[in-house]
Write a protein that binds this DNA or RNA. Structure first.
Lengths: 130, 130
DNA sequence: AAATATGTATTAAGCCCTTAGTACACCTCT
DNA sequence: AGAGGTGTACTAAGGGCTTAATACATATTT
């Protein structure tokens, strides 16, 4: 468990986002046990209450579930998992289109830019902070 | 002047973002006079101090300039204007790539999604709030 | 039984952003 | 000279998010 936090979004939102990514890609499998609130807080160096808030929202959204006071687990509902992935993708696509259209970047140019930067992107990211 | 504000980013950040878009696309021309702090606040229904904060940061970044106590103007520095456009584009591209890679969307699929949604995007946006 | 770990809940404080109200110096226009 | 608009600056209050410090019931482990 490792999250690169930025300073503009609330931490609990970024935690939820990270879990959604893990669920959408299958790195978190259905029914898989996840860290307790306190353990997650320790791992991420955040406050237990912040972890609790993230978990609470995820539980309300059906992303995770908790039986009794056992460690929470990833949902087994395939339709939710599928919806999460589609939500993330749609969000990324719409956000990108809105951005490039707001600065009048034509479709061809936008596609070309993505193509040119996709492969070696992870490498470049090492220099990016915040 | 019309900005659709969201609730997650600080208002003065969104104002700056809007000005950058206008500058990058040439809708704000070099040397063009811009609304005073108070007038902008009136137009956008925000507090004059928030407008002041946005203008102050833009002045520090060289996006606008102020001579005496005359209304501020858009920079005439072509290199800054070019840099703004490139910054916005790079930001959009990197953000998009980071998003799709985090959920393992292959390049081909990502490009196809952008292509499929680019044309009719402005229409769909009418239903989107917040 | 005792200790530990779990989920859950409450209260308080601090920080950032926004809003609000005010103030001052400067310039332009009447 | 006076009025109005400009940039600029300051203090104060409120809201949302985070952090902090506890607290409690339950289940598991020792």
């Amino acid at each position: 468990m490792n999250i690169k936090f930025n300073n503009r979004d609330p931490v609990y939102i970024q935690v939820i986002r990270h879990f959604k990514e893990q669920i959408a890609t299958g790195r978190f499998e259905p029914g898989q046990e996840i860290p307790s609130r306190r353990e997650l807080a320790n791992q991420l160096k955040i406050n237990p209450n912040t972890a609790q808030r993230a978990y609470k929202e995820m539980e309300e959204q059906g992303l995770i579930y908790t039986e009794g006071n056992l460690p929470s687990r990833i949902t087994k509902d395939a339709s939710i998992i599928k919806a999460v992935r589609e939500e993330l993708i749609l969000e990324a696509v719409n956000s990108f289109i809105a951005s490039v259209q707001s600065i009048n970047v034509p479709l061809d140019e936008a596609l070309q830019l993505v193509k040119n930067n996709y492969e070696n992107f992870t490498v470049e990211q090492e220099d990016i902070h915040d």
